[in-house]
Structures are given as structure tokens and as C-alpha cells.
């Protein structure tokens, strides 16, 4: 060891060696301080991110779960009652093709209005928080609106099978909606 030190510091004065030691110590302190600052910043960022997630769950998502479920259930029930009315044989006997068409248009407008409120409020709020998730949720709702529109628009007078098909599609969209929603909070 002594030989190595003699080799390394051959010709150095004791002050020069002390200066080097002091410099190394100073560098150690700076590195330690920087590590501390970086660790604190990461912890603060993680805490902030956790707080945002907690806020999102407690303030935005959880209070709305019941409303989201109700929205999808009501949408299916509303669709079912509209199809039943459109295919009611008593009505069909007395109504003209034009009245049938007008009824379809009215029901489609009702459905659009129902969806619009949901998209503009809850989905809009999520979009403000996370644009990617908000866009995905909006696209899901748009595909539901389109399915609803074509199911009523293409309805023939004696076809009730569309109720089950629409109900399955609606539940499929609902499950995808929740999956996307909870992706934001890593559930």
C-alpha cells in the first residue's frame, strides 16, 4: 500500500495531498447533496401523482359510479321501450310509413340528447384531466350513439331481436368504458 501511495504521489508536497483530500471530500458532499435533492424531487413527484390519483378516484370517479351504471341501464331501458312502441302491432295498423319514420327520428333525437349530456359533462371532465383517456371514452360513446342510431334507423316493423343485440353491445361498451377509466388510476 505504502509503495502504491509513494508511486502515485511521488513529488507531491503534504499541502498538495491535503488539498486533493479536501477536494475529494467536497465532491463527496456535493454528490451526496445532489442525490438527496433528486430523491426528494422524485418522492415529491410520486406523492403529487398519488394525490392526483386519490383526488381523481375520491372526487371524480367514485361519486359517479352509480350515475354511470344508471346511465347505461336507463339507456338500454329507454331503447327497449322505444323499440316496443315502434313495433307495436296496434300502432302499426293505424300509422302510415311517414309516421313510423317520424317516430324513429324523434326517438333517435331523444337518444342523442341523452348521450350528449353524459359526453359533455362526465366524459368532458375526464378529457380535461387526461386527453388520451377522454378521447377513448368519447369514441366509445360515439360508437354507442351510432349503434343506437342504426338500430332504430334500420328497424323493420316486426323486428324485436334488435333489443337483445343492442343491450349486449351497450354492456360491452360499459365494460370497456370502465376498463379505460380505471387505467388512469392503475387499478
Amino acid at each position: 500500500m505504502k509503495e502504491i501511495l509513494d508511486y502515485l504521489f511521488n513529488g507531491w508536497t503534504i499541502e498538495e495531498i491535503r488539498g486533493l483530500v479536501a477536494l475529494i471530500m467536497l465532491l463527496g458532499i456535493v454528490v451526496g447533496l445532489m442525490t438527496f435533492i433528486i430523491e426528494r424531487s422524485i418522492a415529491r413527484y410520486n406523492r403529487k401523482s398519488e394525490n392526483r390519483k386519490k383526488w381523481l378516484i375520491e372526487i371524480i370517479i367514485s361519486p359517479e359510479i352509480e350515475n354511470i351504471n344508471k346511465y347505461f341501464e336507463d339507456f338500454i331501458l329507454n331503447f327497449e321501450s322505444q323499440i316496443n312502441e315502434l313495433t307495436d302491432s296496434t300502432n302499426l295498423k293505424i300509422e302510415s310509413a311517414q309516421v313510423f319514420l317520424l317516430k324513429k327520428a324523434k326517438f333517435i333525437s331523444e337518444g342523442h340528447g341523452f348521450n350528449k349530456i353524459f359526453i359533455d359533462t362526465f366524459v368532458g371532465l375526464i378529457y380535461e384531466y387526461d386527453k388520451n383517456v377522454g378521447s377513448t371514452l368519447k369514441n366509445l360513446m360515439v360508437s354507442l350513439t351510432d349503434k343506437y342510431t342504426t338500430s332504430i334507423g334500420n328497424l323493420s316493423i316486426d323486428d324485436k331481436s334488435t333489443i337483445q343485440e343492442f343491450s349486449q353491445f351497450c354492456n360491452f361498451i360499459k365494460s370497456k368504458f370502465y376498463r379505460e377509466l380505471f387505467k388512469m388510476v392503475d387499478y
Binding site: L101, A105, I108, H112, T145, D146, T149, I152, G153
Partner: peptide
């Protein structure tokens, strides 16, 4: 004529 909906999509 006979169009019941023109969707935003």
C-alpha cells in the same frame, strides 16, 4: 328525403 338522422360521427 326520408333521412331520420345525420350523426356527428
Amino acid at each position: 328525403e326520408g333521412t331520420t338522422s345525420f350523426n356527428p360521427s
